[in-house]
Simulated assay, not measured.
Amino acid sequence: MTTEVIKKPPTWFWVVSVIALLWNLMGVGSYLMDAYVSIEQLEAMSQEMRELYEGRPAWVTACFAVAVFGGTLASIALLLRKKWARPVFIISLIAAIAQFTHWLFMTNSVEVYGTGVYIMPILVIAFGVYLVLFAKKGIANGWLK
C-alpha cells in the first residue's frame, strides 16, 4: 500500500495560480467577444479584416475555444491542487499553437494588421509553456494530488 504525501504549497504557488485563472478568464472574454461579433462591428471593419474574420475555418474557432476554456479549467484545477491540471494545460497549449499557426502562417494577417500581430501569440504560447512547467513542478513537489 502506498500513500501519497501532499505538501502545502508556498504562497507564490497561489499567486501564480490566481494570475493563471485571471489570464485565462481574459481569454474566455476575448473568445466570447470574437464569437458574438455584431453586424455593426463587422461593418466597421476594413474589407481585409472582415475577410480574415469571415474566412476563418471552424477548426480555428474550435482551437480558440479549447485553448481558453481548457486553460481556465486547468487553472481552476491548480487552485484545487489537482494533478490533472497539467494534461489540460498541455491540451490548451496545443490548441493555442494550432490557432496561432493558422493566424500567422496561413493567412495574410501580418499584411492586414502589421507586425504587432506577433505579440499576443508569443505571450500566450510563452505563458502556456510556463503553466505546463509550473503544473509539472507542482506535481514533482507534491503540491498537486
Score class of each variant (00 low, 15 high):
Lys82Phe: 08
Ile122Met: 13
Ala135Phe: 02
Cys63Arg: 00
Leu93Phe: 13
Thr115Tyr: 10
His102Asn: 14
Val110Ala: 09
Gly116Cys: 10
Glu51Lys: 12
Val129Phe: 06
Ile94Asp: 02
Ala74Leu: 05
Val124Ala: 07
Ala77Thr: 07
Ile125Pro: 00
Val117Phe: 08
Gly116Gln: 10
Gly114Cys: 10
Gly70Asp: 05
Val66Glu: 03
His102Leu: 06
Phe127Met: 14
Asn108Phe: 07
Phe89Thr: 04
Ile90Trp: 04
Ile94Arg: 01
Ile122Leu: 14
Ile97Glu: 01
Asn141Pro: 01
Ala126Asn: 10
Ser109Ala: 15
Lys83Met: 13
Phe69Asp: 04
Lys136Met: 11
Ile119Gln: 10
Val132Asn: 03
Ile94Gln: 02
Cys63Val: 02
Lys82Met: 13
Phe134Tyr: 11
Ala140Trp: 06
Thr107Val: 07
Val88Ala: 06
Ala65His: 06
Ala98His: 05
Ala98Glu: 09
Tyr130Asp: 05
Ser75Gln: 06
Leu79Asp: 05
Gly116Glu: 10
Asn108Tyr: 09
Phe134Glu: 03
Trp59Phe: 15
Leu73Gly: 09
Asn141Met: 14
Met120Gly: 10
Gln99His: 14
Phe127Leu: 14
Tyr130Val: 12
Gly114Tyr: 08
Glu111Pro: 01
Thr61Gly: 11
Thr107Asn: 06
Glu54Pro: 01
Ser92Leu: 09
Met106Ile: 12
Tyr113Arg: 10
Tyr118Pro: 02
Ser92Tyr: 07
Phe134Pro: 00
Gly55Ala: 11
Gly55Asn: 11
Lys137Ile: 12
Tyr53Ser: 10
Phe134Met: 04
Ala65Gln: 09
Gly71Val: 01
Pro121Asn: 07
Val124Asp: 00
Leu52Asn: 05
Ile91Ala: 15
Val60Glu: 06
Trp59Glu: 09
Ile90Thr: 14
Val124Met: 04
Tyr130Ser: 11
Gly70Trp: 01
Leu104Arg: 02
Pro87Val: 11
Val124Lys: 00
Met120Glu: 13
Gly128His: 02
Ala126Trp: 07
Leu131Lys: 00
Leu93Gly: 03
Tyr113Asn: 13
Phe64Tyr: 12
Ile139Trp: 00
Ala67Val: 08
Arg56Thr: 15
Ala62Lys: 11
Gly114Glu: 09
Ala140Asn: 15
Ser109Gly: 11
Pro87Gly: 11
Lys83Phe: 06
Ala67Asp: 04
Gly128Asp: 03
Gly55Met: 10
Ile90Asn: 02
Thr72Pro: 00
Trp103Lys: 03
Ile94Lys: 01
Lys82Gly: 07
Cys63Asp: 05
Pro57Lys: 12
